[in-house]
Amino acid sequence: MTDLLRFDDWTSPVPPVEREVLSRLVEGEDGQPPLLFVPGPGLGAWAFAEHWLAHAAGRGFPAHALTPRADGGLRAHVHDVVQTAASLPRQAVLIGHGAGALVVSRALGRYPARAAVLVAPVMDRWATLGAALKANPFGTLRSRPRLNRKQLFSDGVDAEAYLARMAFSRRLTVPKETPRPVGRPPVLVVGSPDDRVVPRKSLDRVATHYGGAPLLFPGMAHALMLDTGWPEPIDAILDWLTKELSAGS
């Protein structure tokens, strides 16, 4: 019933902000649907602009990444994702990473995405908190939790430069229930068994919720899109997408 009666939106709409969207477009845009990458509030669109946007565009997918608004709550982040998706010329594929996957999972209840990918999704309240406490107890207990280089990156990544660009914000409250996606899009869960933020159990649980199994990339850290092995997951995502899109049409 809450699907139909949206008193929050009707009585106190989310205040608009200027949204930063980085894009890599494709010449003669046809064929493939646009991709919208959504990072967690700690990262910005830059994290996807580093490797994945250009790579996806190179394979024919117009690719966009959204920087989460500063100090927004979950509702504001979901609003921004739906607004950005609706502003694209065609039905978009939503790809969320970390807490951005949580935002995407909520946005899927609002906007009928063409497909969705949840990368290392932080959607499992206690499991992710437990993992974070184990890996980084002091950073986790701050009012604006911090992630350290060991949690985010594997060796060989220029972690200091990336960490300097991160903005740590308040932890998003994870609601108990995940909405059923509208328009029944195919949903893929991607992660790494060696992720120190999202435990393997949690990946399985999220994937099961969407009726699948997670696609795993052993040896990678939480920030898959910045890892040295970044081409592997994005290629797998685009392969999956190509297969799903041809099956659906």
Binding site: P13, V14, H79, V82, A86, R110, Y111, P112, V182
Partner: peptide, 15 residues
């Protein structure tokens, strides 16, 4: 007003 008029799955631009 806009929030009470838009399609629930395709909002009008919030600006």
């Amino acid at each position: 007003s806009r929030p009470l008029t838009e399609f629930p799955d395709f909002p009008m631009p919030d600006n």
